[in-house]
Design a protein around this nucleic acid. Structure first.
Lengths: 160, 160
DNA sequence: TATTGTTATACTCTATAACTATA
DNA sequence: TATAGTTATAGAGTATAACAATA
């Protein structure tokens, strides 16, 4: 990736100013790290699926048959990492791989019926804890989170 | 997506929140995992400090002399993990440990001048990438993030 | 020669269990 | 006996480098 934007555009023109961004980013980083660890600790224990596996499985389910490389991009890991992740999902029969007939280098990954089932199950069960925490926030706070979700997703996503 | 919440018009004013929570939590989880990996990949390479180390260092700096156990709580890791993290920071002379005089089981951790310096340096430098990404969001999106930050922090924090 | 994915290898992060030292 | 922290150990998660297969 190496997205060093220093070669082109003038450094960050904005109406709110840099201070907001610096502050915002710093706090967002701290919150994300802790939230991640919180989620990791409360990844569903019954299914034996870690956060990493569930996240990848969900992405496969959502993005249909998807190449391994694209999956790595989406999940923001390197291809070798994704190879391992998919192998683990395949072992559990939650996904299948099909080699592309036209270009045999390409492997497309797809969720199985079992995968979909597990995903549904796991989704509600493992989110219970977080949903409970969420319910302890105020209505306004939940509303704020809801409103910020698209921005979070864009920030975390690929459209940079 | 209900993404136009900048001025008013709360998208989903449901109080019982079950369905909202499930959806919200699920998406928040995905976004958090990816955002975390994005941040991890762009943790400052020059300083040789990982996200984990910087996060802990920042917490030490913010929370003054703090016991190791409390630090583990704050960072949401187990005490043995924090022992290792602090040992690494100490090796680099970014923090010091003082054994409590009254109760010699307790170790208090404190940032050093070098630690503060590094932290300041690193903070701007490593956040450049994220700040740049942030600047590609719309004003409304940044505003939404800013508004959601307290909720995120509460959700990730200890005041459940 | 370039692209897609894999294997080999090593390192970081983290946890649980058992331990030490204080209290 | 209880508490704060450490050591020992193991397992996940991830990356880089080198490779194989295919185009």
């Amino acid at each position: 990736m190496t997205a060093q934007s220093s070669t082109e555009a003038p450094p960050i023109p904005r109406d709110e100013g840099d201070e907001l961004s610096v502050e915002l980013v710093a706090r967002l980083r701290m919150a994300t790290v802790r939230l991640y660890r919180l989620m990791r600790q409360h990844a569903d224990p019954n299914s034996g699926l870690s956060q990493t596996l569930i996240s990848a499985l969900a992405t496969v389910a959502r993005c249909g048959p998807v190449t391994l490389g694209r999956l790595a991009e989406l999940e923001r890991v390197q291809p070798p990492s994704m190879t391992r992740i998919v192998a683990q999902l395949e072992e559990r029969a939650l996904v299948v791989r099909h080699v592309d007939a036209a270009d045999r280098r390409i492997a497309r990954v797809q969720v199985t019926a079992a995968g979909t089932e597990i995903l549904d199950e796991v989704r509600t069960r493992r989110n219970e804890y977080l949903a409970a925490r969420l319910s302890e926030l105020t209505v306004d706070e939940r509303r704020a989170l809801d409103a910020a979700l698209p921005a979070l997703e864009r920030l975390a996503g690929l459209q940079s």
